[in-house]
Design a protein around this nucleic acid. Structure first.
Lengths: 264, 264
DNA sequence: GGGTCCCGTTGACGCCCGTCAAGGGGAAGG
DNA sequence: CCTTCCCCTTGACGGGCGTCAACGGGACCC
């Protein structure tokens, strides 16, 4: 499925061109709000989702000192690339990212989509080199967390937790790729997105996909045509409405049922 | 594929029965050697592979104090189960484990195979509950590393590295499940095993599979029949010899070529 | 306004691989 | 020895989904 599709996502004239297109797909109110926030983690409205989540106040204050840089990444640009030297973690402040890995023969796969409050870059700790590409799917902003500082602070347990949850998330993706059929995968994908939007204060039943059918397919181990067909079928079955990247979920329970009833 | 296959791996009369069968499939010389080893990490022959890998001597001494328990797990028994309270990590000292996750509807998937020197249990750090089942595929022994002690010591960076490498490994599995065809998956699986046996001082071209075709299939997202058929085909093509669980790799480069030539 | 480039949709076709089924062999126990 | 129970192998068959292809629409540019 992916050989041709994959190369379309790699840096290419077509893709480079896209860098110049700056469209604000993110909810505007939120983004403006964010840009007015002070630099302090302790007063960040992502506090509950981000790395310092659950810290007591004194620990949280430690974090304030740790994040001394922000970084903007425009749509289509990379936050980092596979092979790049590792020295920092990144907390997504606003925007949307995909991560992907590339095989020697050029095939690649999207390994995750990442939104506000999530931590990126942990793949680099083990080898001091990043193992994946991370690319912004819309204009985004991250908080830079120098790893050396974090590792010297008393906050490693938080990092352990975040990494551990990431391991568990990966298990879920393996499960999805290894045992689910196409319609189950897409239903699980939509439910996951819905859940994550809800946790961030956005609507859980109506949202805008930041990624293409290609990228969804790559993530789910399906061809883009299959993704498109399934969107259409879900719509026929009145589970959702789809219009390009605009999604409305009409029947959450129906989507959940796809995942159990599909194999009797 | 997996509904029926999966339940066969779950606790069941058939499986329970297996617990009473104690077969020593592991290389005997090695196991005897291990059982004579002193309790110290610093003199363990898995030192180079295990968590304290790369530590300077004083740090390594810290580890000696940390591991104060060993635990034996017989074939078919679980080291821990999904949902169990988390309090320790485990370093595989000898033997062989599989980890697996279960979906609500009973389908399950093997998410990894684990051998000497590898660390288990990191899935529990995030939520204080384990997320997967870990089951011994042969009589095994682990070193118990209480997490509270580890987290209070100065050795967290080592743990970060181990967890990060696990994240990268998971990316590889996702790639395998998402973009590879059946024959590529099995070739990649054999090459991975070969590599890991080599790193532990065993033969890289001749070894004994500890897991069934079922479990391989579950891990690779294939049916057990497909796994079996591919073993036969690889043998016809003189890439390997298979006799039940005994594997001889004749043509490592040929196996590697499967992964690139299969899609032109 | 017309052209270009993606992106998404839909149909036709075919193959990989899952499912079902039958049979054989190894290991443990009587 | 024979029996039992897994586990593995092999064949037949069919369907799910990938591939190829054509087309339409939206966004941006000249």
């Amino acid at each position: 499925m992916t050989a041709a599709a994959a190369t379309a996502l790699r840096p290419s004239p077509a893709n480079t061109r896209r860098l110049t297109l700056v469209r604000a797909n993110a909810p505007r109110a939120r983004r403006v709000e964010v840009s007015r926030m002070p630099t302090r983690c302790s007063s960040c409205n992502l506090h509950e989702l981000c790395l310092p989540c659950g810290l007591t106040d004194p620990d949280s204050a430690l974090f304030d000192d740790m994040v001394y840089t922000r970084k903007r990444v425009k749509r289509g640009e990379s936050l980092y690339r596979a092979g790049a030297a590792f020295d920092s973690l990144y907390a997504v402040r606003s925007g949307f990212f995909k991560s992907s890995v590339v095989l020697e023969d050029g095939r690649d796969q999207v390994t995750g989509f990442h939104m506000a409050g999530e931590i990126l870059g942990m793949d680099g700790i083990g080898t001091d080199r990043h193992a994946a590409d991370v690319i912004a799917l819309e204009d985004s902003e991250v908080c830079v967390i120098p790893y050396a500082r974090l590792a010297d602070s008393g906050l490693q347990r938080q990092l352990h937790k975040v990494m551990s949850r990431e391991l568990v998330r990966d298990q879920g993706v393996m499960m999805l790729l290894g045992t689910m059929r196409a319609e189950e995968r897409l239903a699980a994908f939509l439910l996951n997105l819905s859940h994550r939007f809800l946790a961030r204060g956005f609507s859980s039943h109506e949202f805008h996909l930041r990624m293409t059918r290609d990228e969804i397919g790559s993530y789910l181990g399906l061809s883009l045509e299959t993704v498109s067909r399934l969107f259409s079928r879900f719509q026929e079955e009145s589970l959702i409405s789809v219009q390009q990247k605009h999604i409305v979920i009409h029947d959450i329970d129906g989507l959940k049922a796809v995942m159990v009833h599909v194999n009797e």
